[in-house]
Amino acid sequence: MSSTDTLELTEVELDLAKPFACVVWNDPVNLMSYVTHVFMTYFNYSKSKAEQLMLQVHHEGRAFVSHGDREKIERDVAAMHEFGLWATVEQGG
């Protein structure tokens, strides 16, 4: 194995080691009550945690709502899109 190969492998490993996050972005359409409902039903968050995240989206423009490996986060983002929330996969956070 050449040194280049080793380097690439290490980079991939480092990349995978970084946590992924599902980020929900503020939009003028989704209701505060609805967003809270989505966080409670999909993530099983308590009402207070769901409301806290919803308010963060509302006031700060976005919130990191879940963390995990890429597969889990892509599933979460797809679920948010099903609910009509504007969500993206982000690394770190």
Partner: peptide, 14 residues
């Protein structure tokens, strides 16, 4: 939608 989400949430306690 607001009235519907509130009606649905009345069942979600915690």
């Amino acid at each position: 939608q607001e009235t519907l989400v509130r009606a649905v949430m009345r069942d979600e306690t915690n």
